[in-house]
């Protein structure tokens, strides 16, 4: 499922890549950039706060490099020199949409934010959430991709931003081997949730290969246990019935069983059982009215 998210099969929405200091998610982000650039008629805008343009372009597909627009906020993020191309204070819906309008119109526009952690240090989280939601809904951008260093923020802040994401990938180093583990969660438009945990590696050409599915240790144990046990193998007593024994068993009427014969015997008393004989007396006060008159019988 990691590959599906990276290839953008389900278009649109907000994809969040979460990493920690133990394993950087930037390679994964670059891999996403690369696949996005390979698609025709797609323009990618990058708001770069943490890497220079050269570093970001390094390794990316050269043929489609002109469709990548880098907005440099790395050299002067706070606008101290007064001629900064992009500052952190410009992270508003209006400023971003004017940025997007400067380039020729395309079918699909992807906005990559590298990284959200930088912006979160200069804006209140609620404002960023609103901006992201507005970008997602606005229509000018098809997909918003953000990198977030989760160990830099409070749990609630990370949770709030993750709450907005339509897909989020959490990367962590694998305990043994060279690969990394990616936990992918995707929410479809109907509200269905899909989760997956995969071990992956990224090669020099920035293509992602999924090595194996991360197996849950708890589940695999259950499967092995079941095949071994056969409790009926060596028994000191007989569990099977022979035909005569079964016949005898079926003949036996169990107590408290309300069979059909028993029921009919109770309802229709046969000959020889008792009956009530009653002859009306002259003094009898016989009520002509039907006592159940008011009932719908």
């Amino acid at each position: 499922m990691l590959l599906e998210v990276l290839q953008g099969t389900e278009a649109g929405g907000f994809i969040l890549i979460q990493d920690t200091v133990k394993y950087s998610g930037r390679q994964l982000l670059k891999s996403y950039l690369n696949t996005a650039l390979k698609r025709e008629e797609e323009i990618v805008h990058v708001l770069g706060f943490e890497t220079s343009e050269d570093e970001l372009r390094d390794g990316l597909d050269k043929t489609s490099a002109q469709r990548l627009h880098f907005h440099n906020a790395y050299s002067d993020p706070l606008g101290w020199t007064a001629n900064s191309p992009f500052t952190v204070h410009q992270f508003t819906v209006e400023d971003i949409s004017t940025l997007l309008k400067q380039t020729p119109q395309a079918k699909a526009v992807t906005l990559v934010i590298d990284s959200l952690s930088w912006i979160l240090r200069h804006h209140p989280p609620a404002v960023i959430c609103q901006t992201l939601q507005a970008l997602k809904k606005g229509g000018a951008v098809r997909t918003v991709v953000g990198l977030l260093h989760t160990d830099m923020h409070q749990r609630g802040t990370v949770g709030s931003i993750r709450h907005l994401a339509s897909a989020h990938i959490t990367v962590a180093p694998e305990t043994r081997g060279m690969g990394a583990v990616a936990k992918t969660t995707r929410r479809t438009k109907s509200g269905k949730l899909m989760q997956d945990e995969q071990i992956f590696s990224i090669n020099e050409e920035l293509s992602v290969t999924v090595q194996s599915k991360h197996s849950h240790p708890g589940r695999s144990h259950n499967n092995t246990d079941e095949s071994e046990v056969d409790p009926t193998a060596n028994l000191t007593f007989n569990l099977r019935l022979s035909d005569t024994e079964r016949e005898a068993k079926e003949k036996l009427a169990l107590p408290f069983v309300f069979s059909k014969e028993k029921k009919s015997a109770l309802l229709h008393p046969g000959p020889g059982s008792g009956r009530i004989l009653y002859e009306p007396d002259a003094n009898d006060d016989y009520d002509q009215e039907d006592p159940d008159d008011d009932l719908d019988v």
């Binding site: 209140p124 989280p125 609620a126 404002v127 959430c129 609103q130 939601q133 409070q154 609630g156 802040t157 949770g159 709030s160 709450h163 907005l164």
Partner: peptide, 13 residues
């Protein structure tokens, strides 16, 4: 109460 309502309940202690 979510952040989209401009509330910082979810974001800070």
């Amino acid at each position: 109460g979510s952040a989209l309502w401009g509330d910082d309940l979810c974001c800070s202690d």
